[in-house]
Computed example of a mutant assay.
Amino acid sequence: MSKRLTDKEGEVRELTDQDVKQMRPMSDVLPADLQRTIRQQGQRGPQQAPTKVKTTMRLSPDVVDHFKAQGPGWQRRIDQALREYIREHG
């Protein structure tokens, strides 16, 4: 097994099962400040107490387009609209 992860042209080669077995946790090899930076960029920490239920539902394309057009947070806005509906019609 080659220790190098790149070939002569600098392309990353496919990882073998042995490569994966030799991998170590990021906490063993990276400084703490770099670990924090990596976690802040796209990784959520553990959720303390789940407050919502994960579900799948089908919505009309125009409804999804309307909420998505308002930018990030569209799923939260749909949740808020449904809560408002429940308050008004509950």
Rank of each mutant, 00 (worst) to 15 (best):
P72C: 06
D7L: 04
T55K: 04
P46A: 14
G10D: 08
M26K: 09
K21L: 06
A69I: 12
G45D: 08
D79K: 02
S60V: 10
M23A: 05
Q70K: 12
L30F: 03
G10R: 05
R58Q: 15
K54S: 03
M26Q: 05
R77D: 08
D79N: 06
Q47G: 07
V53L: 06
L15E: 06
L15I: 09
Q18F: 15
T51S: 13
D62N: 12
G71S: 03
G90L: 04
R77N: 08
D7S: 03
W74H: 00
V29I: 10
G90M: 00
H66A: 15
R24S: 01
R58M: 15
A69L: 13
D17P: 05
Q22N: 04
G45T: 10
T37M: 11
E14H: 03
H66E: 15
Q41G: 14
G90V: 00
A49L: 11
K52W: 14
R4N: 13
Q75I: 00
Y85A: 06
V63K: 02
E84Y: 07
P46M: 11
L15A: 02
R4D: 14
L34N: 12
R36T: 15
R76P: 01
K21D: 10
A49I: 08
R4T: 14
A49M: 07
V20F: 01
V64S: 04
G73S: 06
I78Q: 05
K54C: 04
S27L: 12
A69V: 13
T56I: 12
K68E: 03
P46I: 11
D62R: 14
Q70P: 01
T51R: 09
E9V: 06
P50C: 08
Q40W: 02
P61G: 08
R36E: 14
P46S: 12
K52N: 11
Q40E: 10
E9P: 03
T6P: 08
A81Y: 03
M57G: 05
Q35P: 01
I78P: 01
V12S: 01
